[in-house]
């Protein structure tokens, strides 16, 4: 059993992780935590740095859930990355965080959560911050 969660170091990312941990614990599943960036811009605050990754790892270890962290720049969107991990590992559940966006924001930016919801082959749990 595998649960995939898209993690970002923001409130919605934290609450996604929180729910993913509970789901994984309940299902006795392995938790795959994905944090990536396309590396498009010089600065990407959604890509966790070493300090944040260490905190994350500590938290995962403390939770006692079987886990794995996928972290790095592979030139793909976060949504593509999450979907491809879910496909390759035959995930039973994907957990994503959603943040509130204005209508204009939705139009211009699109969203990682939206793409995952539309394109995933397995159930998706969308969590609001």
């Amino acid at each position: 059993m595998n649960v995939v969660v898209g993690y970002v170091p923001t409130p919605e990312g934290e609450s996604a992780l929180h729910h993913a941990l509970e789901e994984a614990r309940g299902r006795k599943a392995r938790l795959l935590v994905v944090n990536t960036s396309r590396g498009d811009a010089l600065v990407d605050e959604r890509f966790a740095d070493e300090g944040q990754m260490n905190l994350l790892r500590d938290r995962l270890t403390a939770s006692g859930v079987d886990h794995e962290v996928i972290h790095g720049i592979h030139g793909r969107d976060a949504s593509e990355e999450i979907l491809s991990v879910a496909r390759d590992r035959r995930a039973d559940l994907i957990v994503v965080g959603l943040r509130r966006r204005s209508p204009v924001g939705k139009l211009i930016l699109g969203s990682t959560g939206q793409r995952v919801l539309l394109e995933a082959d397995c159930p998706v749990l969308a969590v609001k911050s």
């Binding site: 960036s37 396309r38 590396g39 498009d40 811009a41 010089l42 600065v43 990407d44 605050e45 890509f47 740095d49 720049i73 030139g75």
Partner: peptide, 8 residues
């Protein structure tokens, strides 16, 4: 093209 993502 460099592919990096840093933190400010």
């Amino acid at each position: 093209l460099r592919r990096t993502a840093a933190h400010v």
